[in-house]
Amino acid sequence: MWKFIVRRLFITLPQVLLLSVLIFLMAQMMPGDALSGLIDPNIDPAAIEKQRETLGLNNPWYIQYTDWITGALQGDLGQSFRYKMPVTELVEQRLINTFWLSVATLIITYIIAIPLGITSGRYNDSWADQLITGYTYIGFATPLFIFALVMLWVFGYQLGWFPTSGSVAPGLTPGSFDYVLSKIQHLLLPAISMALITTVNTVQYLRSEIIDTKQKDFIITARAKGASESRVYNRHILRNSLLPIAAFFGFEITGLIGGTVFVENIFGYPGMGDLFIQSILLRDYSVVTTVVLLFGIASILGALISDIILSLVDPRIRIK
């Protein structure tokens, strides 16, 4: 199994490398460069050209890439011209916000998906199943950004249960209990909104896994041994159906990235998704590149996590 994980890691490295090259090249193809927005247009073009030369902007792309990636590895991702601060610093706080939002979303996703999926799969074709499947169809059909807007309007503005923007109330000392509470309060509504929509995949997946496992021969064997229905469910059906769900976990992370882009914007939540849209609108290229790079890495890591989980829980892969 360790061989498998190590081998899997070996594949991940070139993936990340290739990703960074692609992102860098795409950034290069975008019009303008680090200087075009920064400099007063009245300055002599020859001086700008000189500046370009000293900054290495006229070097061939692979030299520029090497410079960029060396910097990135040392934590230097360039300057954001919009915020006038290093990208690393800018991203740091947002990354933490998005991380907590994602964690909350994942937890809520599973809190919803597991009981619904189990009920739906175990009592398939009952009225409860039909209700749940109905919900999943609505979930599939509803665009997240519209749903999030409705949630914000109802629970944020109409009912006033949740704050309508930001990630924490101003004026609280970081680390204090109130601060943490306020943080949670701020991320709850976006997290719930996102979870309610993204969870339908997992509900459907779990439902069909359970229905599938229910019809397996070894379930008959278990019954023939005298196992009660509840034991058959808990020991045989559930255990075997949750396994692919666990493996699906990594891919959920990938799915979340798309979600955060919408949700953070709508809820004015200062995270990576929000930053991504902002920086595109403002042509803050060094920030865009960084965000895309981080999203890409998150996706690759998600796939990696999935594979590792699967290799840990499935004996058919574990023993080799």
């Binding site: 021969d217 064997t221 023939a224 196992a227 075997n240 058919r316």
Partner: peptide
């Protein structure tokens, strides 16, 4: 079932829980 009466199945691969 399992105590006084028991059953042997046709396909021994699918009749066992793979996990």
């Amino acid at each position: 079932r399992g105590e006084d009466m028991a059953m042997i199945f046709q396909d021994p691969l699918t009749a066992l829980n793979p996990l």
